[in-house]
Amino acid sequence: MIESAAATTTPANDLLSDRVSSALAASPHVPGGKLRVEAADGEVRLHGNVTTFFEKQMAQELVRRLDGVDRIENLLQVSWS
């Protein structure tokens, strides 16, 4: 499940957060685990756990390609268990 939480609630931030969450949920390279997305004014923060560095990088690359994303803070943690 991908959770979405806009840092500052505005229609534009909510839309960006929803677009990022939807793109991550649809990706075969990002686990369906619990990830959290924060979006504000073109900045996106990714929170949660993934199982490999590849998944962490793929999540970032997927988000980087979305319109409206100016900056990404990838706070995903790699959990080996």
Rank of each mutant, 00 (worst) to 15 (best):
S27V: 03
H29A: 11
R19A: 09
D41Q: 13
H29Q: 11
Q60G: 09
G48Y: 04
G32L: 09
R65G: 14
G32Q: 13
R36V: 14
G33K: 10
D18H: 11
V63S: 12
K56T: 00
D41L: 06
V30Q: 03
L46R: 04
N49V: 15
A59I: 00
V30H: 08
L35R: 10
F54L: 10
P31K: 06
A23S: 11
D70V: 15
D67K: 07
V50C: 07
T51Q: 11
S27Y: 02
P31T: 14
V69W: 02
A39L: 01
T52Q: 10
P31E: 11
A26W: 01
R36P: 06
R19V: 07
E43P: 00
R19M: 06
F53D: 15
T52D: 15
K56N: 00
A59P: 03
L66Q: 08
A23M: 05
S17N: 14
K56E: 00
V69L: 04
T51H: 12
L24I: 15
D70N: 13
L62T: 06
E38G: 06
E55S: 07
V30K: 04
R45Y: 07
R45D: 08
G33L: 12
D41W: 01
A40Q: 11
V20Y: 03
D70C: 10
M58D: 06
D18P: 02
G42S: 04
S21I: 02
S17A: 15
M58K: 08
A59W: 00
G42W: 01
A59T: 00
T51G: 15
L66A: 05
E43V: 08
H47Q: 05
R19D: 08
T52C: 09
V30D: 07
E43Q: 06
V30E: 09
L66M: 08
Q60I: 02
L35T: 09
R36G: 12
S22H: 07
S17P: 01
L35Y: 01
M58H: 01
P31I: 12
S17G: 14
D70I: 14
S27K: 11
P31Y: 05
V30L: 08
A40G: 04
D41T: 04
M58V: 03
A25R: 13
E43M: 08
G42Y: 01
G68Q: 09
L66T: 04
S27N: 11
E55P: 05
A26M: 14
F54R: 11
K34V: 14
L35M: 13
S22N: 15
V37Q: 06
Q57H: 10
T52N: 11
V44S: 05
G48H: 07
L62Y: 02
A59H: 00
A26G: 15
A26P: 14
L35P: 05
S21E: 03
R19L: 10
